[in-house]
Simulated scan of single mutants.
Amino acid sequence: MHPTTAAAGPPAAGGNRRPGYLYQKVAAHLAAHPDQIFTVGELTKTLDVPSTGAVFDALKKMAAAGYTTHLTRPHRFQITQAGIDAAGQMPPPAPHPPRQGQRGAGRRQPVTRPNGDLYFPRKLAGATDVDVLQRLRDKRIPVLLYGPPGTGKTALVEAAFPDLLTVAGTGDTVVEDFLGNFIPLPDGGFEFVYGPLVTAMREGRALLVDDATLIPPKVLAVLYPAMDGRRVITIPSYRNERVEAADGFYVIAGHNPGVHGAILTEALASRFDVHIEVTTDWDLARHLGVPRPAIEVAITLNADLAAGRVSWAPQLRELLGFTRVRKTLGAAAAVANLVGRAPQEDRDHVLAALKQQFGPDISALTLGKQR
């Protein structure tokens, strides 16, 4: 039996024939389980939806409106009271970022990300990183951000582009995660839900391909016609529908060198005219209240990482986590937790660096005997 849809005519330029159906399905499930935190994969499987990209897009919309919390690595979501009160109603569309020449004098101030955290712009090419990314988008110059996990690549893109859509790359990412797929309807039929690439092209939005180098090259090739001079793709699984990119459509990608399975192919690298390395800003870490000894440990371990002596070193994400744990559980537990976050093969090296700053009595955070 072939999938059916609610209407025979072509879809409107903004999305599927039942706007918000998947969003409402995701919101209803979260509202029914207010105490649970879900990953994108868990929700996709539970709701029997074939496209993780479509589910992730719905969750990002909820997070941007304050309807869910949004944790990363992995991406996890939990509904908030505001989300429960919204009763599945979609928030208004995110505003497009201002065009070049419209950014005000306050652009160097902290920028609020969709999850509510602040991003502090950094210097780049005589301006700020946020400003530079916006200027590159204006000129349709694609950017590849690269650096260790936790240095703030995703945070930077979220700060620069309030209208951002995201594809979270893994080795299991498929073409449908970009283009969309059929989902079952309550009446037994099916409806095609467009993926984030199609939505970004039609609505002139920015698309982040996070961890792009984990995605199989044959899958990633779906992006290339949208990025070149044609700026047109087709959807083979849906009547070979033709999709043209609206003004403002923009692709930016993230790459974590050294991560297992991350391969930067020549085909991918050549599609991005600008490659920007993103490293941890130690001055920002100090500004955000990270204790000096923890920063010194991170600087030492990052030097070892650059020299190839270790495969992991704490970045800004781990340092901010250290600070939160320290405020909640105390310094000893925070240090012990940092040991436990290190890969097993690097743990002795990390432990030695921590002992130089925090003293000899350190071990990984471990359960003890019953009290």
Score class of each variant (00 low, 15 high):
105 A>S: 09
102 Q>S: 13
100 Q>H: 02
95 P>M: 06
84 I>F: 03
94 A>D: 10
89 Q>F: 01
90 M>Y: 10
101 G>V: 08
93 P>A: 08
90 M>A: 14
84 I>P: 07
90 M>Q: 15
100 Q>L: 00
94 A>F: 00
91 P>S: 02
101 G>K: 01
92 P>E: 12
79 I>Y: 09
80 T>L: 14
77 F>T: 07
100 Q>V: 10
92 P>H: 07
74 P>I: 14
77 F>Q: 00
74 P>S: 13
87 A>V: 14
78 Q>S: 14
93 P>C: 04
97 P>T: 03
99 R>T: 13
87 A>F: 08
85 D>G: 06
80 T>W: 05
89 Q>G: 08
89 Q>P: 01
95 P>A: 15
102 Q>K: 15
90 M>L: 15
86 A>P: 07
95 P>Q: 12
102 Q>R: 13
87 A>P: 10
102 Q>W: 12
85 D>P: 11
93 P>I: 06
99 R>F: 00
98 P>E: 07
86 A>Y: 14
101 G>Q: 02
104 G>Q: 11
80 T>E: 07
93 P>G: 10
80 T>M: 03
105 A>W: 01
94 A>P: 05
101 G>I: 10
75 H>C: 04
105 A>F: 00
105 A>L: 01
103 R>G: 10
85 D>S: 13
77 F>V: 05
85 D>I: 00
104 G>K: 07
80 T>F: 11
98 P>T: 12
75 H>V: 08
105 A>H: 03
99 R>N: 03
74 P>F: 13
88 G>L: 09
94 A>K: 04
78 Q>G: 15
89 Q>T: 12
85 D>N: 11
76 R>H: 03
105 A>I: 13
78 Q>K: 10
104 G>P: 04
83 G>S: 13
102 Q>G: 01
102 Q>E: 13
76 R>C: 12
104 G>T: 14
78 Q>R: 07
76 R>S: 11
77 F>A: 03
90 M>P: 12
99 R>A: 01
82 A>N: 12
91 P>H: 04
76 R>F: 01
97 P>A: 08
99 R>Y: 01
80 T>Y: 11
92 P>L: 10
105 A>Q: 08
80 T>S: 12
85 D>H: 07
103 R>Q: 15
80 T>D: 06
99 R>Q: 04
86 A>D: 06
93 P>L: 04
90 M>K: 15
74 P>C: 06
88 G>K: 01
100 Q>T: 10
96 H>A: 15
74 P>L: 09
